[in-house]
Design a protein around this nucleic acid. Structure first.
Lengths: 226, 226
DNA sequence: TAACTGTTTACCAAATTGTTAACGATGCCT
DNA sequence: AGGCATCGTTAACAATTTGGTAAACAGTTA
C-alpha cells in the first residue's frame, strides 16, 4: 500500500530544502517547504502534515522551539517530527529528543539516508497508529470492528465501502483526489475502472442516509457534515 | 511517440526475462534484455533506457552494484530503477532503496503486477515534472492536487484557471506578458480571443477573494500579495 | 442455493469549462 | 475635449467533461 503523506521541511539553507524536497517528492510524498521557524508553524497549522522535518538553526524560531509549540497542541500529537542539525554533539541531540522529536539526523545528510529514514518512520506509524476510532459529530467510525454508528444505530458497510469512508473521514474537510483515493484504498497495483469509486460512494451515501460526502467536481470527494 | 518508453530488464533466469519482456513489450514498451550485471551496464550506456529493472542476484555484478554505478553517473540521475529479488526481508529492501532504486518488488512476480507497477512509476515521473507546491504568504498552490489553499480552506479552480495562477505565482513579482501567458498556458498553436485571458483572471480573482494579481497596463499581469 | 461484494458497462443528466460577444470604464495622448 | 487603446465585467453559448444510476456479472461467502 503506497501511503503518500505530506511532509513539511523547514531549513533556512535553500540548497538543502531543494535537494531534500526533490528527493522526497520523487518518492511520492507531498512536500511543503519553509525557510524559517514562523513559516514552518504557519504551514503546519494550515496543512497538518504527517511529518515535519526541522532544522534546529533557523531565523525567528529554532527547530526546537517550533517542535515545542507543535507538541504542546493536541492537534499535532500524532505528527512525526525529525530534527536536523549541523551540531552533532550529544547535548543538543538530547535537547532535541526531549522536546519530543521522533528522530534526529545530523548534517551533512545524504538524501538517500533521509528518504529511507522517513520511509521507516512512516512504516512504524502505519503499524500502530492507523487504527483509531474516528468520531465526527453524531457519527463514530470504528476501524477495528468495521462498524459505523450514527445516533446510536449501527450501520454495516462492506470492506471497501468502509475503507473509503474511513479515508475520507480521517481528514474531514480535506479534498481527496480520485488518484489519492485509488492508491490509498485500492493500492497502486490494482487498476480499476473510472466508475468504481462513484458506485462505492453511492452505496455509502445510501447506507448512511446522511449527506456527509461532498462531490468536488473535477477534483474528488471530501467528508463534511452538514 | 511510437513506444511508451525503453525498459532494460536484467536477470540471469532466462524464463523470467522472457515472460516479463514479453508482457512489457505487449504493453507498448521497448524492451532490452540483459543476462548479467555487466551486460546490463553496457546496454544501459548504449541505449539510456527510461527504466531499468534489476534482479539483485546476478553474475559478475549484483543488481545493487549496477544500481550504484548508474546512480553515481549524472546521466542516469533521472533513470527509474526497480529492484527485483527473491529476498523479501527488510534489510535487503532498505539496502536496495538506499542504493537509489525507485521501487522494489520481490519474487515471485506476477507479470500483471509488474506491468501496473511500471505504469505507475512512469505515470508518477510524468506528473512530477518539476512541479512543486508553491507557498506564498497565507496561500499554497498544490500542482498535484489542483487545489489552492488559503488560510486553511481549499479553493477549487478550473484547470485553465489553475494553470494560469500557477504560472504567475511561480515567479511572484515578475510581470508576464500576455504573449508569454498565452504560449505557456494555451500553447503556441491555439488561437484564442483577446478577452480570454482577462476573463480567466477575473474568475481567479473572484474565487481567491484576495488581491493578489496585479494588472500592468499595456504589458501583462503579475502575482503579488498586498 | 442464496446473499453479498466488488467491479464493469452503458446510458443519462447535470455541471463545468473555455470561449466569445457586447458594453462600460478607465486612462492616455494630442 | 475627443479619439484611441486597453482592460473589466457580465451574460450567453456550445462542447465537453463529469458524476449518478441501474443493471449485470463473476467471485466469494454463508
Amino acid at each position: 500500500m503506497d501511503h503518500k503523506g505530506t511532509i513539511l521541511i523547514a531549513d533556512d539553507e535553500v540548497d538543502i530544502l531543494e535537494i531534500l524536497g526533490y528527493n522526497l517528492s520523487r518518492k511520492g510524498y507531498r512536500v511543503l517547504e519553509a525557510k524559517d521557524g514562523n513559516q514552518a508553524l504557519d504551514l503546519a497549522r494550515q496543512h497538518h502534515p504527517d511529518l515535519v522535518i526541522l532544522d534546529i538553526m533557523m531565523p525567528y524560531k529554532t527547530g526546537i522551539e517550533v517542535c515545542n509549540v507543535l507538541r504542546s497542541q493536541p492537534d499535532f500529537a500524532d505528527t512525526l517530527i525529525i530534527m536536523l542539525t549541523a551540531l552533532s554533539d550529544e547535548v543538543t541531540q538530547i535537547k532535541g529528543l526531549d522536546s519530543g522529536a521522533d528522530d534526529y539526523i545530523s548534517k551533512p545528510i545524504s538524501p538517500k539516508v533521509l528518504v529511507s529514514r522517513v520511509n521507516a518512520l512512516f512504516r512504524r506509524v502505519q503499524k500502530d497508529g492507523g487504527q483509531k476510532v474516528l468520531s465526527i459529530g453524531e457519527m463514530t467510525i470504528d476501524p477495528v470492528r468495521f462498524i459505523v454508528t450514527r445516533e446510536g444505530t449501527d450501520i454495516i458497510l462492506a470492506k471497501k465501502e468502509f475503507e473509503l469512508l474511513y479515508l475520507l473521514a480521517s481528514k474531514p474537510g480535506r479534498v481527496f483526489l480520485r488518484n489519492e483515493i485509488l492508491s490509498n484504498v485500492w493500492g497502486t497495483d490494482v487498476i480499476v475502472g473510472d466508475r468504481t469509486i462513484d458506485v462505492h460512494i453511492r452505496k455509502i451515501r445510501q447506507k448512511l442516509d446522511v449527506d456527509c460526502i461532498t462531490t468536488v467536481k473535477g477534483v474528488g470527494y471530501k467528508f463534511e457534515l452538514h
